[in-house]
Design a binder for these strands. Structure first.
Lengths: 147, 147
DNA sequence: CTATTTGGTCAAGTAGCTTGACTACCTGAG
DNA sequence: CTCAGGTAGTCAAGCTACTTGACCAAATAG
């Protein structure tokens, strides 16, 4: 292994951080000023048929209490709705409201916008190769950036 | 732009997170059990001739008060030493102790160890290409993962 | 039916940051 | 030189997103 690969962690972190910051800034610029990146990660999980608090907690890598608090916040801000769970009377299904769906659309646009300069800098084929290589690393997928 | 590029943020975040977690776990396994990844980022800045509190704060992307608190913690734990600044009597130069240097060596070994499976999965040339592409993105370099 | 597990919330505590205020020292204009 | 303003660092207090612990209600196992 080449020794200068050791700065790969820094590069990876920088790229990921810039991406997250950029997307969040673009989402805020679109009027969703009361959201953090962590909320976006929650939206990702909720946007496919909803999820329970426990499922959200697992997705975010936090305790169910923390997930419950975030859910409460998102409900209060109008992005999420609590519905009775279809098969489990204890559980409640968290689903996005119309405002929540609008926010995810804005986030998609923001992501594309932030990625555009990357595509022009690297060329589309190199960027696609980057994505392919990263996807082959079989990353476990835990999203929990609170270091 | 291909539409499946939109999962690049998730991939990038996952890869960066896995790397940071892996390196930190390996460092902890080598006996440095009282350190977080954020301390590693501080060591990166201090390992080249030391730095002042303000310089450390800029590197970490936090306030000088936060950097001062971390410096105090690292001094207390024996990784860092405060020396009078050679040209500015207000400032104090933070430098790594022998223990701090040993920890950075352990972190280098840990990074190599964590990257090894990546090299075998992608092949050395693809990994090098990955690094090259990332470095061309001109990432500002702010390391501040507290979202 | 009872015993255990599971989904969710309430409550209190904590770690790592923030803003604000202050001292000591440096720097530049006159 | 003096002195006004800027800078390095610390102390203090406050905030926020998390944590652990306790608890209830509903599901599930025996």
């Amino acid at each position: 292994m080449r020794h200068d690969l050791l700065d790969l962690p820094v590069l990876l972190l920088g790229a990921a951080g810039a991406l997250v910051e950029g997307i969040n800034a673009a989402v805020v610029a679109r009027g969703f000023t009361d959201l953090r990146p962590a909320h976006g990660f929650a939206f990702v999980r909720l946007s496919h048929g909803g999820a329970t608090v426990v499922e959200l907690a697992e997705h975010l890598g936090v305790t169910k209490q923390a997930a419950s608090q975030m859910a409460e916040e998102l409900v209060r801000k109008g992005y999420v709705e609590r519905r009775p769970h279809p098969v489990d009377a204890r559980a409640r299904l968290l689903v996005l409201t119309a405002q929540g769906v609008a926010c995810t659309r804005a986030a998609d646009e923001a992501a594309e916008e932030v990625l555009r300069p990357w595509a022009t800098a690297l060329g589309p084929e190199r960027l696609a190769a980057l994505r392919a290589d990263l996807s082959r690393l079989a990353v476990p997928g835990r999203i929990r950036p609170t270091w």
